[in-house]
Design a protein around this nucleic acid. Structure first.
Lengths: 234, 234
DNA sequence: TATTTATTTGTACGTTCGTATAAAATTTTG
DNA sequence: CAAAATTTTATACGAACGTACAAATAAATA
C-alpha cells in the first residue's frame, strides 16, 4: 500500500452495487466507505447545501435510503466525512509533535519544525494522496470560514491545534500569545488555500498548469517561519 | 457620513415596504439596495445554496418576485452583491497604489506599504464599517475556497491583485515570481480568515471576547511583510 | 429448518426550492 | 386627461429537497 494513502483508499469497484440482505462478514463497512467517499466528493464540489443525499446515493450506486440508514440525518453524514480523515490527520500531527519533542530533549522545538510538522501531513496527503484525500482537502478549505464548518473543525482539530500553539508560544518566548494565535490562523488559512486548488494562483501568475503543491509547501514553510520569528521583536 | 462606510450605508427604514406603482424619482434604487443588503446578510450567514430567494425577500420586507424582477436569476443577484462593494474596495486599493507609486518616485514601493495598502481597506471596512461591510467580509471568506466564489472573485478582484503582485515582484527583485504569488495568496487567505469572525481564534487562545481586528491587522502586516522579505533569500 | 438480524429496495409524504404569469397600483409621458 | 411605463402584489407550477415506512432479501442464529 502506498505510504501517502495513510491506510485509507477509495472503496474498490464503485460500479457494483451490493445485493440486499445481511452481509457475510460482521458489518457492512464496504458500503459505509463507499457512501463516505461519494459524500466527500460531492460536499467538496458543491458544499453542504449544494450536495443532496440523492446525489450522494447515486454517486455511490445505492438507493436513497441506504445513506440515511447508515449515517442518519445529513449533518451526521457530514460529520462522519470530516471525522474519518481528521482522525488520521490528527494522528500524524501528534506523532510528529512527539518525535520533535523527543529530538529537542527538553528545549523548545524550532519554529520551522513546528510549521513543517503541522502543515506537511495535510499538503502531502492532498498532493500525493488518492482522489479521496484531494476531495477532503478541498472540502476543508470550503469549511474554513463558515459557521457549520468551523464548529465541526473545532470538534476534530482544536485539541491538536492548541498543542502546536503552546509549543509555538514556548519557542517564541517574549511574543504576544495572541499574535502567535493570529500567526497560526494565518498559517492554517494559507495551507487550506493552497490545497483548495481554486485555480486563482494560476490566473494571477499566468501559469497554464498548477504549481506542484510541494513547491508551494516549501515556500509556505519559509514564509510563515519568517513571519513567526518577527513576532518576538517588539 | 462616517468615513469608514465608504459612501455605502444600509438602506434606511428596513421595516417599511414600498407601495406598488412607479416610483417618484427615476429608478427604484431604494428597493434594490434593500434587497442587496438582505442577500448580503443571508449569503454570508448561510452560503449561496443555504440562503433562499424567499428568505432574502422576507428579510427585505418584500414579496418573492421583487427580487427576481430587479436582479433576475439567483446567480445574478449573487454577483450583484459581490460587485457592489468590490467596486468600492478596488477603488480604495487603486488609490492607495497610485499614492504609493507617487511617493516612491520611480523606486520600488516598500513591501510593508504594499501589504498594508492591500489589506487595510478590507479589514478597516470589516471592523469599523456598518453591518453591511461585516456581512460582506464574512461572505468573501466563505467564497475564497469554493468554485463559484473563486469565479466571481476572479471577475471582480484579479486585475487589482495582479497590479499589487507586479509591485511586490518588483520590490522583491531576485525572488521567484511564483513564490511571490504564493505569498500574496497566503496574505489574502489570512486577511479573509481574520474577517470571517468564526470564533476559532478565541477558542484557540482562551479569550472570551474577539480580539480587535485592528490588532490582528497590525500583526498580519508585520507577519506577512517578514514572510515576503525572506523570499529574496535563495 | 425456523427465526431473528442486518441491509437494500421501492415508494411516498410534506416542504421548500427557483422561476413564471397575471393583475393591481402608481407615476410618467403624450 | 388618457396612455404608456414601472413596480408591487398575489398566486401557481414543476422539480428537488430531507426524511420515513413497509416490504423484500440474504446471512446469522437457534
Amino acid at each position: 500500500m502506498p505510504r501517502h494513502t495513510h491506510g485509507l483508499t477509495l472503496a474498490t469497484d464503485p460500479a457494483r452495487p451490493r445485493k440486499p440482505g445481511r452481509p457475510k462478514g460482521g458489518r457492512s463497512d464496504h458500503t459505509r466507505e463507499r457512501i463516505l467517499d461519494a459524500a466527500e466528493k460531492l460536499f467538496a464540489d458543491r458544499g453542504y447545501d449544494g450536495a443532496s443525499i440523492r446525489d450522494v446515493a447515486a454517486e455511490a450506486g445505492l438507493q436513497i435510503h441506504s445513506v440515511g440508514y447508515h449515517f442518519g440525518p445529513k449533518e451526521q453524514l457530514f460529520d462522519a466525512v470530516v471525522a474519518r480523515r481528521a482522525d488520521i490527520m490528527t494522528g500524524l500531527r501528534r506523532e510528529a509533535l512527539d518525535a520533535a519533542r523527543e529530538r529537542a530533549e527538553g528545549a523548545a522545538i524550532p519554529i520551522k519544525q513546528l510549521v513543517r510538522d503541522y502543515v506537511s501531513p495535510f499538503i502531502q496527503s492532498a498532493s500525493h494522496g488518492d482522489a479521496g484525500w484531494r476531495n477532503y482537502a478541498a472540502l476543508m478549505g470550503r469549511l474554513a470560514n463558515c459557521p457549520l464548518g468551523t464548529e465541526i473543525i473545532a470538534r476534530h482539530y482544536d485539541d491538536t491545534a492548541r498543542a502546536y500553539i503552546a509549543e509555538l508560544q514556548r519557542a517564541l518566548a517574549g511574543a504576544d500569545p495572541e499574535d502567535v494565535v493570529d500567526g497560526f490562523s494565518a498559517m492554517v488559512s494559507a495551507m487550506l488555500g493552497i490545497c483548495a486548488a481554486t485555480g486563482r494562483p494560476e490566473r494571477l501568475s499566468g501559469r497554464t498548469t498548477r504549481r506542484p503543491p510541494e513547491d508551494s509547501f516549501e515556500t509556505l514553510v519559509r514564509f510563515h517561519t519568517a513571519g513567526f520569528l518577527t513576532l518576538t521583536i517588539a
